[in-house]
Design a protein around this nucleic acid. Structure first.
Lengths: 252, 252
DNA sequence: TGCGCCGACTGGTCTGACCAGTGGACTAGG
DNA sequence: CCTAGTCCACTGGTCAGACCAGTCGGCGCA
């Protein structure tokens, strides 16, 4: 090795950090499963042989990681949560706010991501899954008559299904997370747009075309339509100067 | 509205949570910028008019979100960190461990993601960026003679450049995060593989082909080669049963 | 000028206390 | 017997004050 020994900066391990590790390891090993309860804070004090402040600092870390949730007064201890994308979403939302991630980058990410997922899905889909997609279209149609929130939920179900068909739960999670952040930024504007209903109908139409293309096994076409749809749906909310960048993503 | 009023569960806002919000808002507004220091804990106690325990619980949350870092003995207060993907990576790593995300899903995600980024990049790249890519290839060649870690770093630079050319920092972050998690799982195995050097050479060769295809403006070919490369590079580390799923991702 | 000591800080941890909630057990009243 | 109300043990959230081991800047000594 030409570089010589690689020393890393040494830093003390905090007690609360070791508690966090122990809990997360227990979760990874399966000794702890979602729905179970952690002992109460005072009980943890005894088990870990540290002070309550230390236990609580560890719990705050676990809580912000989406691992547990504490509820005051609950006779059972903190609850072990099932994995949810909320912690990831928080990170991405922070990225968007603090790191100047623009709306057009978020949308561009979705266009790329969703297009790729649809392309993969159009090859892997089983006949049953095709039926499921059709069913989702019907649900979307019905939801239009309710309100935007309902339509949005049906749309989410569609994309979740696509991600599931692509056999990759990370895609599903990513899609869900970024979609959540995007909607958080502009859902109100869409919901109150005067042509909201027309937008929903057009989106539904595009979705149907996507499903047709998937049925035909034409992944390229399906992905292209999906990207076009997302562009039409969202592009109005990004500055004109950035619209061109997004438009460039439509064709592959 | 046909659904009636939608009540949301009301839950008390904790003091430490409001401190977290205040700090993150200040960051979002730009009142706080990376590199700056927060006041010391005892000073924050005075400013927020809460106890030190509360301040510390808030700091633990901020710390686990990658917003600040505390160092004992530091005469300056906690440091405001620039955004880094470390917090995101922690989430994805947890997802991988706890939520049974498989290695093949992580690799599949990268194949899809990176392929899409390369496809976009091959259209958007400027001549200068093409030169930068060539330069990265040279760096990779040199790094092979050093060790695997160096090669890995040069490879990271290549992918960062691709992501940057695709004009989307979220892609870059995602790529970096998932790449980090994958390497964390199998870097040792690759580094100590007997044919490690041959693998690196082959990978370099593929990268060169990708650059050629990008220069030619053939996004499809570039993406396909990149996916193939990633498959060759990593597939040996996933169970046979899952290799087929990955192989299906190579062609588009 | 250079070096080492010192002291004023830092964050990490601990102790012990109080409070407002929660929910189970217990009890009085139907 | 069952219900409704009370009570109480316990929860997590917060507080005040203390000690410790580090860190680092400045002062004074060689």
């Amino acid at each position: 090795m030409t570089k010589g020994p690689q020393f890393e900066p040494v830093q003390p391990v905090r007690a609360y950090q070791r508690i966090v590790e122990q809990v997360e390891d227990a979760l990874a090993r399966g000794d702890l499963t979602p729905g179970q309860r952690l002992p109460s804070e005072r009980e943890l004090v005894a088990q870990f042989a540290v002070s309550r402040s230390t236990v609580r600092e560890a719990l705050r870390v676990l809580e912000s990681n989406g691992v547990v949730r504490s509820r005051p007064g609950d006779p059972n201890g903190p609850e072990i949560l099932p994995y949810s994308s909320s912690a990831l979403r928080k990170q991405v939302a922070r990225l968007a706010r603090v790191d100047q991630l623009t709306l057009s980058e978020l949308i561009g990410f979705r266009m790329i991501m969703d297009g790729a997922a649809i392309q993969v899905a159009s090859r892997l889909r089983t006949p049953e899954e095709l039926d499921d997609l059709e069913a989702t279209l019907v649900a979307m149609r019905d939801a239009i008559d309710v309100d935007f929130a309902a339509f949005s939920e049906a749309d989410l179900a569609f994309h979740e299904l696509i991600a599931r068909i692509s056999r990759n739960s990370l895609i599903q999670t990513c899609n869900e997370v970024v979609r959540g952040v995007v909607l958080g930024l502009i859902a109100d504007k869409i919901a109150h747009a005067p042509n909201s209903r027309a937008l929903m109908l057009e989106s539904l139409h595009h979705h149907a075309e996507v499903v047709d293309a998937i049925r035909a096994g034409n992944g390229h076409a399906a992905a292209r339509i999906a990207r076009q749809n997302m562009f039409d749906y969202y592009a109005g909310y990004v500055p004109d100067s950035e619209q061109e960048t997004l438009r460039a993503l439509i064709d592959d």
